[in-house]
Design a protein around this nucleic acid. Structure first.
Length: 261
DNA sequence: ATGCCTTTCCCAGAAAGA
């Protein structure tokens, strides 16, 4: 069984590339982030001929997550219990969606960026991650293979950014953000670290600007956090950096995980 | 070479991304 996660930075802008990638990679389940389409606007008809059912949770201009599955789609839950709002508690963004796909349960997440450590958005990010740890505790401890996959907007260690000094005053590397990831691990989840075809670090994101991809200026922020049943079934995991090349890519590359269940 | 930012709102430029 093949499961992937990909921040596509607009599913409409990426649709031709997404369809090509699905045909070539043939994942059974795909968690998408930053779909940037409103409720009902996901182009499900474009992936249906490939055998995929779609569960979507979108809001329009920003955010948006989805799960594609060709092995069944059940128990879909948009959002999560205890999710904080931004900028106020009445505004809940479309950042997570869970679904059961055949033998596995997955949760697609698009964690808030945080902007800067001084910004209210950073406090929101930490509250969102704390709510995530609570929301996944049951699935993390369950016997059913389960993983949280997506854009966590946190680099777990200094090796996961191309130059730690550049990020010294930035989000994505602060002790509080990394402690939030430790909270997820404490709930029973394991970081499934992928391999990559080029370079020593399995980065998953490269800024569009300044030729970052070509200079190796990347970050590993798209993560797969798996419970014991999922983690022990992993037979391989890789970053598909080919998907970051060429004309009109997302700024994120997919992470692909193979399971032997 | 893999190549120097992109997407959305909507028609201009701001906001957001990380």
């Amino acid at each position: 069984m093949r499961i992937a996660t990909w921040n596509v930075n607009s599913v409409l802008a990426r649709l031709p590339r997404l369809v090509d990638w699905l045909e070539q990679t043939a994942p059974d389940v795909v968690c998408l982030q930053e779909t940037k389409v409103g409720p009902g606007a996901f182009p499900a008809e474009a992936v249906r001929p490939l055998g995929y059912q779609v569960a979507e949770h979108g809001e329009g201009r920003w955010n948006g997550v989805a799960v594609l599955s060709r092995v069944g789609l059940a128990d879909v839950a948009a959002g999560m219990a205890g999710a904080p709002g931004f900028p106020d508690e009445s505004t809940i963004e479309a950042r997570t969606l869970a679904a059961t796909c055949g033998p596995v349960r997955v949760r697609s997440v698009y964690v808030p960026n945080g902007r800067t450590p001084q910004d209210p958005h950073y406090a929101y990010k930490l509250r969102w991650l704390a709510a995530l740890a609570d929301a996944v505790a049951g699935d993390a401890a369950a016997a059913v293979p389960f993983a949280v996959l997506g854009d966590f907007n946190v680099a777990p260690a200094d090796d996961d950014v191309w130059d730690p000094a550049v990020f010294a005053e930035s989000t994505h590397v602060t002790p509080a953000e990394r402690a939030a990831l430790a909270g997820l691990r404490a709930a029973g989840l394991t970081d499934v670290v992928p391999t990559i075809a080029k370079g020593p670090h399995p980065y998953t994101y490269w800024d569009y600007r300044a030729g970052a991809f070509h200079k190796g200026m990347g970050m590993r922020i798209d993560l797969v956090y798996a419970n014991q049943a999922f983690a022990t079934a992993v037979s391989g995991a890789y970053v598909d950096r080919e998907a970051r090349k060429g004309k009109g890519p997302s700024d994120h590359a997919p992470v692909v995980v193979d399971l032997d269940l």
